[in-house]
Design a protein around this nucleic acid. Structure first.
Length: 584
DNA sequence: GCCGTTTTCGGCCCGACTGTTTTCAGTCG
């Protein structure tokens, strides 16, 4: 039984290989669209396979449906197998090289008979690539550079890293004369968990653009200027990240902001909506059509903001985080607004470690840091005894820690501080789904977060049952980082999140959004189902240090992307209400 | 390959930038 993700992966593989095989572009794109649809389904695709109604899905026609049925029955997809015979596997990696697309990949491969990235680099360096028609010395040089960047830094970086580059760059540009409006756009504005390029959009008079671009390409962070035009310039930073700056007029700014925020898929739907309403949407604005159905720049449609443009397309404003073409269009046709959680709504810090296990600071230091940052409470949750590698607490240590927390709380009351420390534990879920302490100890905690830290490779069904058993346990209020993934480093465990969300919602158990930028787990892609089932979450920094507490902001970004309003996020409750919820 | 309140065929988002070219193809977002 293949999961949605596995089937989407297969279709995307077809898409990649078709591009490299020089197939009709639109035929290839059709597979990508189908993959996109299946990926964003909140129901298991198995239902559609069993009911033989796959073609009900947008972008899945008779042919692709047949491919999927065959894959389900035989475990292989003829169209894919056929492509694999035609296209050497090594070439797929070439698609990640920026500046090199399918057409040139095919040309280089055919003419030079090479398939591996290392061979490509060599062929660029020794002049063979430059001799090919349509390519030259500069192209070859760019390919070499791209390969080197890719090998050194990878294609994408964490959300936190991108934010730490974009913010100072934005602040710097905002001080430049002539900058009227500025916003970080692209996947960073959409709060994707990993980021490729950083996009910054500026509104300014055309006369001021040159000076702003000068300032941009000469910024301290810049180590390489990739391009410099009248409206767009691109640079590379020392961290290996590409930053694109676009400058548009104030009038164009709202349309450009939508355009450069994306996602690509969201924009495609926006343009189609414009088309079906006899208009054309592009990065400059919304326009009427000529008699031939072409964009008529002499017929601009008025707008002053992103909201206006959405309204013209019969939609309510769609927050940037939700622009992924994963159901937001239907949602915002019906709903006027949907209040998403904001950083200010978070009142307490839940899931933090101290020197009792593998944290860097004492409970008191962590508590005082939380107070200083304006929080009302700290939920300490050190590791349980099985997590010996992380200094997990023995039963004896648990009881000593409780005493320490009681004393600290008394001290805080004496000081008149309006702050409380909750006694929690991050209990390992053992391989049979049981927890790490006897029930009478578990009952002594204010809260229990149940997490998996070992046996991550378990088969999906067994892993899902392991979690379900933990969810059922009356002492457990929250599940920690469900998949255990580390972004860009390690895939998460295989588990049926649909089942887990349903089960957790039924048992009034929350599933945390672990805000550590390496994790951001549970994944935002489960947001639609979580909303439907009214699942609760808690935005937990999993802080091992004082700085780590501030990771909450990345968790909030992901929670917004997953359509959480504050009423479904436990640590937006006041200390009093949080305690009440824990006791219920 | 998918899709249809103008369509079962003929479209499928569209403009900037670059490099290799002398009018354009490839790539990107």
């Amino acid at each position: 039984m293949a999961t949605n993700e596995e089937i989407a992966d297969k279709l995307r593989e077809v898409y990649n290989l078709m591009q490299l095989a020089g197939e009709n572009r639109f035929r290839a794109i059709a597979f990508d669209r189908a993959a996109q649809t299946i990926e964003s389904l909140s129901d298991p695709v198995q239902q559609y396979i069993e009911n033989k109604n796959l073609t009900d899905l947008k972008g899945v026609g008779k042919s692709i449906a047949e491919d999927i049925y065959t894959f389900e029955e035989t475990g292989s997809m003829p169209v894919l197998e056929h492509l694999k015979e035609k296209v050497p596997a090594g070439l797929v990696k070439w698609l990640n090289i920026s500046g090199l697309g399918p057409k040139n990949i095919l040309k280089i491969h055919k003419e030079l008979g090479i398939t591996e990235v290392d061979e490509l680099k060599k062929a660029c360096e020794d002049g063979r690539v430059a001799k090919l028609p349509g390519l030259g010395k500069k192209s070859a040089g760019k390919i070499v550079k791209s390969i080197e960047w890719l090998q050194q830094f990878g294609e994408r970086c964490l959300l936190s890293e991108a934010a730490s580059i974009a913010q100072p760059m934005k602040d710097f540009l905002n001080q430049q004369p002539g900058v009227k409006q500025i916003e970080v756009a692209g996947s960073l504005r959409r709060s994707k968990e990993t980021i490729g390029d950083i996009d910054i959009l500026v509104a300014a008079e055309p006369d001021d653009a040159e000076k702003i671009f000068d300032a941009f390409v000469n910024h301290d962070l810049v180590v390489d200027v990739l391009g410099r035009g009248d409206t767009k310039s691109s640079i590379r930073t020392g961290e290996g990240r590409q930053v694109d700056l676009r400058i548009v007029s104030e009038k164009e700014y709202p349309a450009a902001l939508i355009y450069f925020t994306g996602s690509k898929e969201h924009n495609v739907v926006m343009r189609q909506r414009a088309r079906s309403r006899n208009m054309s949407l592009n990065e400059y604005g919304l326009f009427g059509l000529t008699g031939e159905g072409e964009t008529d720049f002499d017929q601009p449609v008025d707008f002053a903001s992103e909201e206006d443009i959405y309204r013209r397309l019969d939609l309510h404003f769609i927050p940037p985080e939700l622009r992924e073409d994963r159901g937001e269009f239907d949602f915002f046709e019906e709903n006027e607004t949907f209040p998403l959680i904001e950083l200010n709504d978070v009142c307490g810090v839940v899931h933090a470690h101290s020197t009792w296990s593998d944290g860097k600071y004492t409970i008191e230091k962590m508590a005082r840091a939380c107070m200083e940052k304006g929080y009302e409470y700290l939920g300490i949750s050190d590791h349980s005894r099985t997590a010996a590698y992380a200094g997990g607490l023995s039963i004896d240590e648990v009881q000593k820690q409780w005493e320490e927390i009681d004393q600290l709380n008394e001290k805080l009351i004496e000081e008149g501080a309006d702050f409380v420390v909750f006694k929690g534990i991050e209990s390992d879920i053992l391989s049979d789904g049981s927890l790490d302490y006897p029930d009478e100890i578990l009952d002594g905690f204010d809260f229990v977060i149940a997490s998996v830290h070992s046996g991550l490779e378990m088969p999906q069904e067994q892993m899902t049952e392991r979690f379900m058993k933990a969810i059922e346990h009356p002492a457990v209020q929250m599940i920690g980082h469900p998949t255990g993934r580390l972004l860009l480093r390690r895939d998460g465990s295989k588990l049926d999140m649909n089942k887990l969300i349903d089960w957790a919602a039924q048992h009034n158990t929350a599933i945390e959004i672990n805000a550590n930028p390496w994790r951001l787990d549970m994944d935002w892609r489960h947001g639609n189902l979580a909303l439907e089932k009214k699942l609760l979450t808690s935005i937990n920094p999993d802080a091992h240090s004082i700085d780590g507490i501030d990771d909450i902001r990345y968790g909030v970004m992901i929670a917004r992307k997953a359509k959480f309003g504050k009423e479904r996020v436990l640590n937006t409750l006041s200390a009093k209400k949080f305690r009440k919820w824990l006791e219920s």
